[in-house]
Amino acid sequence: MKIVCLVKEVPDSEAKITVENGKIKETGVKFIVNPYDEYGIEEALKIKEAGGEHQVFILTFGTERAKKVMESAMALGADEGFLVADGSAPDCDSHTTAKVLAAALNKIGFDMIFCGKQAIDDDSSQVGVRVAEMLSLGHASVVNKFELTDGKVKVERQIQGGQEVIEMPVPCVITCQKGLNDPRYPSLKNIMAVKKKPRTVFTLDDIGLSADDVGVNGSFVEVTKFEPPLEKAPGRVIEGEPEDTAKELIRSLREEAKVI
């Protein structure tokens, strides 16, 4: 089985993000594999390690820089890596990103697709599901339990008041939630082994797309600017007798905070 794990390059969760002229300043920021995608990679590796003829592929879409993140993802133990490299990647919305990934998936082939339930940078939570729709595949999102038996997957996802159980045939797309498994750490051996494994960089042309399909041209959504979150104002303790403090609280909420 060809198991493909979709991976996104995101800023290090420990990085300090600053905004300059409506754009995120990237100097000094390191980039990592989207942590939710690691659950997908772990699940794929578990299938492979359980035995059988399986291969685990990493697929990512980004600028040339994303090659490093593709390699970091491969260091967890994947067999092969693919990067669709194009300068337009940062301007692509979820629809366009899914279009690129779907085209690349058609090119490399697949029997099963995993990805994170969302990326920790834009939190759009759409790409996995859109890829499935574009490829006419079944999908389940925010999955926290996964089983594969005889070409059939059985997954569970948390819903209000309980667990939803879904069964479907492969190939399908699973978007992974925390709790699905314990993503492993890369060993130094696997980090070094990446350089000896096949790594392919596709251009848009290689996967049958053109500049018109991607970036601002191909997207429905355009990000016009970024703003850092407002600094939280310090809290205030209202002291006094309960009768007075309650009145003061209502007054401040109404007149100062303007929330009631």
Partner: peptide, 30 residues
């Protein structure tokens, strides 16, 4: 570095498989 560590580990009948490694601040944090 990796080759040197491999030799050192091998002498102790261990291998680079018995390691966790990372290069980013988030790896260090973990």
């Amino acid at each position: 570095i990796s080759a040197e560590l491999e030799i050192i580990l091998h002498a102790q009948k261990r291998s680079l498989d018995n390691t966790w490694s990372g290069m980013n601040d988030s790896d260090l944090k973990r």
